[in-house]
Every structure is written in C-alpha cells, then in structure tokens.
C-alpha cells in the first residue's frame, strides 16, 4: 500500500473509553501505515492517552461526557497531536516534579511528565486547556 505524504484527522469527541479507543486506533493505524515504527507508536499512544486522561480528569473534573477536540497529523516523520478541553486550564509550571525524591511515592501527577519525556516538543497553550505535542522520528540511527 502506498504511504501517503501526509495524513490528518480532527475529532470532536469525549473522554469515554469507547470514544478514546476509536481515536487511538485510528491514529495507531495511520502511524503503522506511515511506517513510523514501534518506538513512535508507543510514544504517541502513551502521550495521547495521557492528554485525553488529563482533559477528563483535570479539565472536565472527571466528566467523561464533555467534548474534547483532538487533531492528529502525520507528515513525513513528524507526528503532531493537539488535545483541547473546555476546562479553565492550568499552569504547567505549577505542577510538582513527580521525579523529585519527596514525590516519588505519590500515586498521581506523572501524565504531563511522561508526555514531555516521550514527545519531541510539548506546548501547553495558555490558559492551559490545549496541549500541542510533536514527535519527530530520528533519521540518523534509531528507527
């Protein structure tokens, strides 16, 4: 099958498991078709899951029925994801560092940290209810 030069998709979805799974499976299929490899697939899946979970948990105070806007775009070796909720947003600089010694045994608060670790660029757009995540496949070595 010919790999398209670029692929994009937008969803007006919500945070239920069924809706999230549909978004996730569509993006994973597009990644596979683009031949970006398992490392990219893992990073994108994890980051999209965490961003959607944060939108429901923090943005919408646990209400999984409220709408979430998601866009995904694959161009060459670059994957761009955007997730926006209807919440008031948050200040990412105020999030405690979950890797600090005193926070290691706290059971929550690692989502944004994981997204930052696995994606190449992450931007939390003020007021903090929209996150833009970019993954670039390394062209030298790696995959």
């Amino acid at each position: 099958m010919a790999v398209p030069e670029s692929w994009s998709r937008n969803w007006r979805t919500c945070g239920t498991r069924a809706e999230c799974s549909e978004v996730m499976e569509t993006v994973q299929a597009a990644l596979q078709e683009a031949g970006l490899g398992e490392t990219a697939a893992f990073a994108v899946r994890l980051s999209l899951e965490e961003a959607l979970a944060n939108a429901v948990r923090h943005g919408h105070a646990g209400d999984a029925e409220r709408p979430i806007d998601v866009s995904a775009e694959i161009t060459g070796g670059v994957v761009r994801l955007e997730v926006a909720d209807e919440g008031p947003g948050f200040d990412p600089t105020a999030v405690p560092d979950p890797t600090a010694e005193e926070n290691l045994t706290i059971a929550s608060g690692r989502g944004l940290s994981l997204i930052r670790a696995f994606m190449t660029d992450v931007e939390v757009v003020p007021p903090g209810n929209r996150i833009i995540m970019t993954y670039r496949v390394e062209t030298s070595g790696g995959e």
Binding site: R45, A107, G109
Partner: peptide, 10 residues
C-alpha cells in the same frame, strides 16, 4: 504492552 500514569499510581 502499554500502561498509563494511572496504572503507575496503582
């Protein structure tokens, strides 16, 4: 194959 930050909490 995959787990989320919530699973880490568990």
């Amino acid at each position: 194959e995959h787990l989320s930050s919530s699973a880490l909490g568990m």
